[in-house]
Design a binder for these strands. Structure first.
Length: 187
DNA sequence: GTAGTGATTTTCT
DNA sequence: GAAAATCACTACA
C-alpha cells in the first residue's frame, strides 16, 4: 500500500524511523524502480542550523515549508541531487533526506542511469545506491521532480509491513553544524 | 585496506 | 567570493 500524506504529517523523527525498511518506488520512463530504504537523516525546524530551513523561506527550500508528503529535491556540489521527503505541517520546515537504498527491482535501469563508464571494478551492486547523490542519479531524479507528490504514482513509498527495530543512530553526514543531533538512522 | 583531493554550479553573503 | 545535506579517483600502506 502507498503511504498516505497522513503518514508524513507526524513528528519527523518518528516518520524517519518508520521509513526504514519501506520501498521507494519510481515508475520511470524506462521501467519500474524499487529500492528498500536503509538510511535516512532528519532536518527539523528553523532551530536546526544544518537544515536549509534554518535561514528562512527562500526559492530553493520552499518545498520544505509546504505540506507533508512531497519530494524536496535540490542540487548540491555542482553535480549531485538529493532527495528529501517533506514532513509535518505546512509552514514548518522539516524533511527527511533519503541517504541510501538497497536495489530491489530495475537494477539494470539504475545501472544505466548511473552510467559509470570508467570504473567497474570499485562499483559492486551494493554500492549502486548507497548515497543520496547516487540514489537520485540511479532513479533519474532531478529538480524537475522537485515538489512532486509522494502519495501517488509515478513516485511514492510503498509500505512493506516491515518494522525495523534494530537500527543505529548517529550524527549526520556531510554537515558541519548541529552535530550533537543524532538524527541519522541506518541499519 | 585507508586517506586525501578535485569536480562543478547554485545560492547566499 | 565562499560554502555546500557528495562522490570517485588517486596515492600510499
Amino acid at each position: 500500500m502507498i503511504l498516505p500524506a497522513s503518514f508524513y504529517a507526524r513528528p519527523t523523527l518518528l516518520v524517519a524511523e518508520e521509513l526504514l525498511g519501506q520501498y521507494l518506488v519510481y515508475e520511470s520512463p524506462q521501467g519500474k524502480l524499487v529500492g528498500e530504504i536503509n538510511e535516512v537523516e532528519s532536518y527539523i525546524g528553523s532551530d536546526d542550523l544544518a537544515s536549509h530551513g534554518a535561514r528562512g523561506l527562500d526559492q530553493r527550500n520552499r518545498i520544505m515549508f509546504g505540506p507533508a508528503g512531497f519530494a524536496y529535491i535540490y542540487f548540491i556540489y555542482g553535480m549531485y541531487y538529493c532527495l528529501n521527503v517533506v514532513t509535518q505541517e505546512e509552514h514548518f520546515p522539516s524533511a527527511i533526506l533519503i541517504r541510501s537504498i538497497i536495489p530491489i527491482l530495475g537494477t539494470d535501469i539504475m545501472l544505466s542511469n548511473r552510467s559509470l563508464g570508467k570504473s567497474t571494478k570499485t562499483t559492486s551492486p551494493k554500492q549502486l545506491t548507497n548515497g543520496p547523490g547516487k540514489v537520485c542519479q540511479a532513479y533519474g531524479l532531478t529538480t524537475k521532480h522537485d515538489g512532486m507528490p509522494l502519495t501517488c504514482p509515478p513516485l511514492y513509498i510503498e509500505s512493506t509491513d516491515k518494522k525495523i527495530t534494530t537500527f543505529q543512530r548517529s550524527s549526520r553526514i556531510g554537515i558541519s553544524k548541529a552535530q550533537e543531533h543524532l538524527w541519522r538512522f541506518h541499519y
